[in-house]
Design a protein around this nucleic acid. Structure first.
Lengths: 156, 156
DNA sequence: TTCAAAGGGGACTTGATTGGTCCTATTTGG
DNA sequence: CCAAATAGGACCAATCAAGTCCCCTTTGAA
């Protein structure tokens, strides 16, 4: 199966929750513990995801007491591919990341490989066309649906 | 990183090698040990891949002495998605395969998830548009390039 | 000025997944 | 009747990721 890390899933959920308080300097910050209890994800895990999203510039962390996180951009303008790259690293199906022609140390083994570049490109393209808002819409699972007024906000 | 199993990679290489002897009832069969030495992949692994491809109907096995494998269809008519499904199972990014609304046993945990269906669809679509022939073209790695007259055949 | 709350950045452990091998039928040509 | 080859699992080991925990820095408030 084509696998995507769970952390990416968490990232989308956390970002959806962050969207409730707006994006940019005007938005209110939410703490990691607060997001954890709101989403049901364990607190250390939420913190980890937020750090990764912060490094990628998708969320902004405010340090110190009364600190927290907020989105830097509204969800509809965040392509899913950026979240995946932030959490999972470069989007590529094989270890041989495309472009690195001389990067095959063990050439005898590398001899085996096909050329996956067109596939990587196709997938990247597909993921760029989807925004986080597309995923964060009204969920079919009970508890997320219970977080209520999420959908209208994401429609923005 | 978005990961695809190595076996899928092997499958593409093996199918490319099989294409040298044609497809369908008219094609000559190649043995698993022969394919192994031709591709540089370990023999048991080649056998495993061929079994999987056989179950999926992508290759055809001929049993008994003088047996072997051959393609059932020419590579340009085999979408990559079929190979991935054959080797890796259903294409879905998360454990919650789409469609199964009631399949979330642990609802408290499932509450966490977003809706990945649009993503799965997009990826499936992207992979369906690429054929195995697109991947099996002239490789940039030495040993594969050494397998010579592969490219013209795949251009068919 | 001191304390507590919160983010920042890793390091580490455990568990699941996968890659790879092997063993045993079954088939079939010589 | 034997040898060669596929068919189909069962099994072991190594890799990778999820999750947790640690210590440090920052900063508002008492």
């Amino acid at each position: 199966m084509l696998r995507l890390s769970k952390l990416t899933d968490y990232a989308v959920v956390v970002m959806a929750r962050l969207a409730l308080d707006g994006a940019g300097p005007a938005g209110h910050v939410q703490t990691a513990p607060g997001l954890a209890s709101a989403t049901g994800i364990a607190e250390p895990t939420v913190a980890k995801v937020l750090k990764m999203l912060g490094s990628a510039g998708l969320v902004e962390g405010v340090r110190g007491a009364r600190g927290g996180y907020r989105l830097t951009r509204p969800l509809p303008s965040v392509p899913l591919s950026q979240v995946i790259v932030a959490v999972d690293g470069p989007i590529a199906l094989t270890a041989c990341v495309d472009g690195g022609v001389g990067s095959c140390e063990a050439e005898g083994i590398c001899a085996v490989r096909g050329r996956w570049d067109p596939v990587n490109d196709a997938i990247r393209k597909a993921l760029s066309g989807i925004t986080v808002a597309d995923l964060a819409g009204p969920a079919h699972c009970p508890a997320v649906r219970a977080t209520a007024s999420l959908a209208p906000m994401l429609a923005e």
